[in-house]
Amino acid sequence: MSEQNLYENSEYQLKEYKQRRTNGQKPVEDGAAGTSIAKKKKVQQIIFGLLVLSLLFSLLCLIIGTVKNSMIYSEMKEQQHKLMMEISQFKSNDSAIYREMKELQDKLMMEISQLKSNVSEVQRAQSILASKLPKLKMNNHFWTPCPKNWARFNQSCYYFPSSSGNWHFAKQECSMLGSHLLVINNNAEQIFIKKLSVPKMYWIGLSDSAKERHWQWEDGTEYDSTPHFWASGEPNDAFNNEDCAHLDDKGQWNDINCSTKLNWICEKNSV
């Protein structure tokens, strides 16, 4: 193409561009420049669309979050109201329980006070009774209670020591306790002693040491004035050396050497 034609073509294009600008139309871009501009516009449109979508998504998340928060707040508010009601009810119940406990405490204190008063009266009565107890009249006789660990039968007290010794030692031990070796005066007393003694053997307060075959009770009771409960064939004074009586393992009387070591039974009157 000649320089003149190139010039004319440029002039024509410039004139057409001016005319399009005058008519409010965008100039037509040619070649690679037009394509680049179109791509840029397309990228801008895509970016703008993504921004719009991102904004819409964020707005949607905000709306959902607001709704959820509103629901949670409403639920928490309801729970708070319910809790406040329960606390109020608890306070009311606690107050009622406190009043009830206070009433019970006052009642208990009154009962304790009354009990103390009753105990004091019982102690006074016990003191009065204790002062009169040593001598109480029974069947026209005054009697004293048996000491601790002594057994009572009718008007006598009986003691069964766990130690053992010969007849004379047993006699001395009973005397130190203000008593004497057992004296059996009747069948009822024999039955009572037998129940407590069997199957052990015990010294009784009966001997013929002073005079052979002349048996004597320790308390001075006449031997022939009371029933006898000798075992069969007794007393036999075996080897001429059996002068003291004891209860055998069946509760019957037997004579034996006075130096034999046995348990013994002490007796004293309670009248």
Rank of each mutant, 00 (worst) to 15 (best):
M176F: 06
S225I: 05
T221V: 12
S164C: 01
K195W: 03
L181N: 04
E212Q: 13
F229K: 13
E173D: 07
G178L: 03
K171W: 02
D219Q: 10
L177T: 01
E242H: 12
R213D: 15
N240M: 08
F160T: 09
S197A: 13
S175P: 00
G165F: 02
S207R: 04
S179K: 06
S232H: 11
L181E: 08
E212N: 12
D237T: 02
W217Q: 06
G165T: 07
I191T: 14
H180K: 09
A210C: 02
N187W: 01
N236L: 02
S197V: 05
A245W: 02
S207P: 11
H246Q: 08
F239E: 14
G205Y: 05
N241S: 14
I191H: 10
H168S: 12
E242M: 06
E218H: 07
C244S: 15
S197I: 01
K194Q: 14
T221S: 13
E234H: 07
L206E: 10
W230Q: 10
I184F: 03
C174E: 09
N236G: 05
N185M: 01
L196I: 08
N241A: 09
A210D: 14
S163M: 03
G220S: 09
V198I: 15
S164D: 07
E242N: 13
K200M: 06
T226G: 02
S175A: 13
S207E: 14
G220R: 06
N241I: 00
K211A: 10
A238V: 12
S179F: 01
D219V: 07
M201E: 15
S179N: 06
S164Q: 13
M201A: 08
A188Q: 14
N187M: 00
L177C: 04
H228Q: 15
E218Y: 04
P161V: 01
F160R: 12
E234C: 04
S209C: 07
Y202L: 04
P161Y: 03
G178H: 07
V198A: 06
E212V: 08
G220F: 00
W230A: 04
A238P: 11
D243M: 04
D219P: 14
W203Y: 11
A231N: 15
H214C: 08
S164W: 01
I204D: 11
N186T: 00
D208C: 02
L247P: 11
S232T: 15
L206P: 12
W203H: 13
N166H: 09
E173A: 05
I191G: 02
N185E: 05
K200I: 02
